[in-house]
Simulated scan of single mutants.
Amino acid sequence: MKLTVDEAVLNRLNDWEKADIVLDYDQTLGENGRPVDGCAIGTRFRLVAIDQNSVPDIFAVIIDSNLGPIYFKKDGEMFLTKDMTLTQAADFRIQLKDAGALIDSNVQIVDLRTSKP
């Protein structure tokens, strides 16, 4: 699996080089960057920065990207395809796409690191 992040999105995340990055689709990570109980109805992707070396074990899949490794949950692989892109739309929303379709038209960018640069 590979995710290509466009230049506009990379510019928005220019201080994320010292973070672990998680692609969360079901609100697994709480405000402290740790898993929370509960569930989400539907799929709503969030690209989340958390403190280095703090990726919860549930995020066992690694997606290769030009942003660095992105961690994802094994049970959510059905939502993803082999080659995807994360792009900024004209209205500044972040979109997750594959070669043939839009996966999510409004991916949230969330920084849950306890010590931010």
Rank of each mutant, 00 (worst) to 15 (best):
P56Y: 05
L96V: 13
D83R: 13
T81L: 12
A49S: 08
N66F: 14
M84C: 02
K73Y: 02
I70F: 04
I70D: 02
D98F: 08
F92D: 11
D91Y: 08
K74H: 14
K73S: 06
T87Q: 11
I58T: 09
D98Q: 05
S65L: 05
L47E: 06
S54G: 03
P56T: 01
D64N: 15
I94F: 03
S65D: 04
P69T: 02
V48Q: 03
I94R: 03
Q95N: 06
Q52K: 13
D75P: 04
I63S: 01
L80V: 15
E77G: 10
I94D: 03
K74C: 03
V48D: 02
K82G: 11
F45I: 10
F92M: 12
N66R: 13
V48S: 00
G76H: 15
K82L: 14
A60E: 11
D98N: 07
N53G: 11
K97H: 06
R44W: 07
Q52H: 04
I50R: 01
I63V: 14
D98K: 07
A89L: 15
Q95R: 10
G68W: 07
T85K: 09
R46D: 05
F59Y: 14
L80Q: 10
D51N: 13
G68N: 12
F72Q: 13
K74G: 04
K97N: 11
R44Q: 07
L47A: 06
I62T: 08
M78T: 13
I63L: 14
L96S: 06
L80F: 15
P69S: 12
I62P: 01
L96E: 11
S54L: 08
E77W: 13
R93W: 04
F79V: 10
R46C: 07
T81N: 15
Q52I: 07
G76E: 11
I70H: 03
A90W: 06
Y71E: 00
M84D: 05
